[in-house]
Design a protein around this nucleic acid. Structure first.
Lengths: 350, 350
DNA sequence: TTTAGCACTCCAGAAGGACGAGTGCTAAAT
DNA sequence: ATTTAGCACTCGTCCTTCTGGAGTGCTAAA
């Protein structure tokens, strides 16, 4: 893909103009750009070449050209200049990050909302599920004679709890025994390792309180499952409708439905290593995203977990601006979680 | 508002036809209904009367009539027949409720989604904040020398926790002392009663560990605050676009934006006593809802709290069907929470 | 009080046409 | 060899016009 310098400039001008206006770009408009010293006819010729290379497209014979996915890809890879964040923007992001936010969930909600406001595109965010999480310790706290609290802490430092009421009373000694039994039998095990077999053995050992074992362990299983389970949240869906390409309901509706559908995290790929990933048009797997672009940044949640935050928009999105903002935010999130600036470190609740 | 029997039947026929088709209804269409033995001219006369009473409107001279808000109101109050749920529908709702759902949040998410799917309208749900919540007990669990878990349980049986890491080590005895101090000083107090004054006294009493007091207490304050704070969630926004009245973006966009805006619970009124409430068109306070109707049902979360779940749609919504489904679901939720069918009673996490 | 008939209103959708932006090609110019 | 000017052609957009039909209100008869 060797392009003359002029063709590159033309391609870039077309893409940037189209990004801004969403209107096909004609040869005349490009010729009028300052810094373009050739005539529109020359540009027409070059445009024809660019089209032959698959970098541009014509909506119809006598409209201007619009970039193809391939064109955007080239732009993103080679032509795009880095966007500098304005002071305002960094302030906005910092402010969002520095809200006293306690829970992972809330932080991500907030982050998603900020991204959406900042970019005027719908945003999504998800945290990658953890694998092979195990329970590190159980604590049982007696509340009343017939109620106690289970506290489960995982090896990833997540702590969760549940209040349990019982039909019958319980002694402190029983609880103590149960506690020890749980901690010796069920700690350090992954989901798969907690077998019915093991349960039976433990229940046998628990004597009278055998029913409680399954109560507590099934709570632990819930916790482990919920940690492996990834959830997606979206924000700012309504921004979609502000875009000229989604003025017609036929286009907007399927995409909107897709984005607001049951949050199946599997639909969003989690980039393993790249901190920033851009999927343009047909590069997306999901049909509903075939004519949209997705830009996403991943960040470190600590404990080996990663999260992803990104935006969805028309292929003509302002990649430069958006990548800049996203990566700045993602870095902020990484710092927030990874380095334990959160009061109390990397723990989280829910 | 005394209407002849025939006029009532005509009004009802018009409203039900309009609910179904979203098209203005003409006199001929009504006359053709089985059970209407009079001619279209007669019906025209009656329709003119109904219009004069403000129950019907004309979009323009030669379209049929459409119901006015006042017309809908009359319909809802007097004319509407109770809708029977089909077996399918009840099964669907029951199934949604009987999923093993642990956390209040997830239950409500799920309920909102089910309502939206069941009605094909966007749904919202919110739980009323609690007032005057107090901490019932603190537990501090030592994890490592420089880390411990705070467990806070409120008088409303909500239990939350947080992992705290310390820059320096800590002895079991210190933690024990702290625990006792917290439980004697800060339990049974509402947010307002936890004064800086009190904090100072406690810090003084804590000696060396005085810094920890504020850590733990501020966590407790966060918990109490989050319980007083109401949140709204929405689901199925995309359904809006399926409706003929929101085919034009100009109509859909403001409403969609409004619904997906920052979740300010204040925007949704929580009906105090009515289990079911219907707001038709201009009866809504919010401008964005002026030509929509809101149907909501409230349910008991237990511990004196109430939640609300509802749908938003065009004024021509099928009130009969929707109220039936909502109230069935709300009853289910009440049972679920109020009677403690949730494993472990009324506790919840997050 | 109800009905049939009729003139009138007004929207929706089709059809036609002018406009204009943009193209590709050719031939001249550099 | 590349660039430019000129020109005919294409094709979507916008505007106008027109027509059909659904629905109304009114009047007069049943």
């Amino acid at each position: 893909m060797n392009l003359s310098e002029r063709k590159k400039r033309i391609l870039r001008a077309i893409i940037e103009s189209y990004i801004e206006t969403a209107e096909p770009v004609g040869s005349k408009a490009i010729a009028d750009c300052i810094g373009m010293e050739v005539s529109s006819a020359t540009i027409r010729n070059d445009m024809a070449d660019l089209e032959a290379m698959g970098l541009l497209e014509k909506p119809h014979t006598s409209a201007g050209r619009i970039p193809s996915s391939k064109g955007y890809r080239l732009y993103v890879n080679e032509l795009m200049e880095e966007h500098k964040l304005s002071l305002q923007e960094t302030q906005r992001i910092n402010q969002a990050l520095h809200l006293k936010m306690q829970e992972l969930d809330r932080v991500l909600d907030q982050a998603g909302r900020v991204v959406s406001q900042l970019t005027n595109y719908p945003s999504f965010s998800l945290s990658s599920g953890m694998e092979r999480v195990t329970v590190r310790r159980f604590d049982l706290l007696m509340v009343e004679l017939n109620a106690f609290i289970i506290v489960v802490m995982t090896d990833t430092n997540v702590v969760r709890n549940r209040l349990i009421r019982l039909p019958s009373d319980l002694t402190q000694a029983q609880l103590q025994m149960l506690n020890t039994l749980l901690n010796t039998t069920f700690t350090g095990l992954t989901l798969e390792e907690i077998t019915p077999e093991l349960m039976r053995v433990a229940q046998h050992a628990a004597g009278e309180a055998y029913g409680l074992i399954s109560l507590v362990v099934s709570f632990a299983i819930e916790v482990l499952e919920s940690l492996e389970h990834r959830t997606v949240r979206t924000a700012g869906l309504a921004h979609l409708l502000e875009l000229p390409e989604y003025r017609s309901l036929e286009r907007a509706q399927p995409l909107l439905s897709y984005l607001s559908e049951e949050n199946d995290a599997a639909r969003f790929p989690v980039p393993k290593d790249d901190p920033m990933r851009i999927l343009i048009g047909p590069e997306n797997v999901a049909d509903a995203l075939k004519d949209t672009s997705v830009v996403m940044a991943s960040y470190d949640i600590g404990e080996g977990m990663r999260g992803v935050i990104g935006v969805v928009g028309p292929t003509r999105m302002d990649y430069a601006k958006i990548t800049a903002r996203l990566s700045y935010l993602a870095e902020g999130l990484s710092k927030l979680f990874g380095q334990g600036q959160l009061p109390g470190g990397k723990d989280e609740e829910t």
